[in-house]
Computed example of a mutant assay.
Amino acid sequence: MAATTAADAFPSTVSSDSDSDDLLLPNLLPSTTTAPAPSSPSREQLHHFQIPSLPSPITVRALPSRGLSFQLWPSASTLLRVLPATPCLLPRPPALGSPLSVLELGSGTGAAGLALAAALPARTVLSDLPDALPNLRHNVELNEHLLGSAGGAASVVPLRWGDASAMADVAVAQTASPFDLVVASDVVYYEELVDPLIETLRFFVKGEVAFVMAHMRRWKRTDKKFFGRARKLFDVEVVHEDPPLEGWRHGPVVYRFTAKKQHGKK
Score class of each variant (00 low, 15 high):
residue 262 Q to K: 13
residue 44 E to P: 02
residue 62 A to C: 13
residue 51 I to A: 14
residue 116 L to D: 03
residue 51 I to G: 01
residue 123 R to M: 02
residue 64 P to W: 15
residue 17 D to P: 01
residue 49 F to L: 12
residue 49 F to S: 10
residue 265 K to H: 14
residue 147 L to F: 06
residue 196 P to I: 03
residue 225 K to F: 02
residue 250 H to K: 07
residue 134 P to T: 06
residue 174 Q to R: 14
residue 9 A to I: 01
residue 103 L to I: 07
residue 230 A to K: 07
residue 68 L to D: 00
residue 93 P to K: 03
residue 118 A to L: 05
residue 2 A to F: 11
residue 146 L to E: 11
residue 234 F to G: 02
residue 127 S to A: 14
residue 101 S to R: 13
residue 254 V to W: 06
residue 10 F to V: 10
residue 129 L to W: 09
residue 213 M to G: 05
residue 175 T to H: 13
residue 33 T to H: 10
residue 108 G to S: 04
residue 100 L to T: 03
residue 189 Y to D: 12
residue 125 V to C: 15
residue 243 P to I: 02
residue 175 T to N: 12
residue 151 G to Q: 08
residue 35 A to T: 09
residue 156 V to A: 08
residue 41 P to V: 00
residue 98 S to V: 03
residue 118 A to V: 00
residue 221 R to E: 11
residue 59 T to F: 01
residue 224 K to D: 13
residue 250 H to E: 12
residue 248 W to M: 07
residue 107 S to Y: 09
residue 170 V to L: 12
residue 248 W to D: 03
residue 9 A to T: 10
residue 74 P to Q: 13
residue 103 L to R: 06
residue 49 F to G: 00
residue 196 P to M: 09
residue 153 A to K: 15
residue 146 L to M: 12
residue 22 D to K: 11
residue 106 G to Y: 13
residue 22 D to M: 08
residue 13 T to N: 07
residue 147 L to C: 02
residue 115 A to G: 12
residue 101 S to W: 01
residue 253 V to D: 04
residue 198 I to C: 13
residue 263 H to P: 00
residue 247 G to N: 10
residue 176 A to G: 07
residue 122 A to D: 04
residue 31 S to I: 04
residue 46 L to M: 10
residue 186 D to L: 05
residue 109 T to F: 02
residue 204 F to A: 05
residue 188 V to I: 14
residue 230 A to M: 13
residue 81 R to A: 01
residue 145 H to I: 03
residue 170 V to Q: 07
residue 141 E to L: 08
residue 222 T to Q: 11
residue 259 A to M: 10
residue 172 V to C: 10
residue 202 R to C: 09
residue 204 F to N: 07
residue 92 R to I: 00
residue 72 L to D: 11
residue 44 E to I: 09
residue 122 A to W: 01
residue 183 V to L: 05
residue 3 A to V: 03
residue 140 V to A: 08
residue 239 V to Y: 04
residue 169 D to F: 00
residue 262 Q to N: 09
residue 214 A to P: 01
residue 243 P to E: 14
residue 2 A to R: 08
residue 33 T to D: 07
residue 55 P to C: 11
residue 161 W to F: 10
residue 43 R to D: 06
residue 6 A to M: 13
residue 141 E to Q: 15
residue 181 L to A: 07
residue 109 T to E: 04
residue 122 A to G: 03
residue 94 P to C: 04
residue 102 V to Q: 12
residue 164 A to I: 02
residue 118 A to E: 07
residue 174 Q to S: 15
residue 247 G to K: 05
residue 91 P to V: 01
residue 114 L to S: 12
residue 18 S to A: 13
residue 186 D to H: 12
residue 248 W to I: 00
residue 56 S to T: 12
residue 217 R to Q: 05
residue 23 L to Y: 14
residue 15 S to K: 11
residue 133 L to V: 02
residue 131 D to M: 06
residue 233 L to A: 12
residue 246 E to G: 06
residue 177 S to I: 01
residue 168 A to R: 13
residue 203 F to A: 09
residue 47 H to F: 10
residue 33 T to C: 00
residue 264 G to I: 00
residue 153 A to T: 08
residue 52 P to F: 10
residue 209 V to T: 15
residue 129 L to P: 00
residue 133 L to P: 04
residue 172 V to I: 08
residue 187 V to G: 02
residue 145 H to A: 15
residue 266 K to I: 02
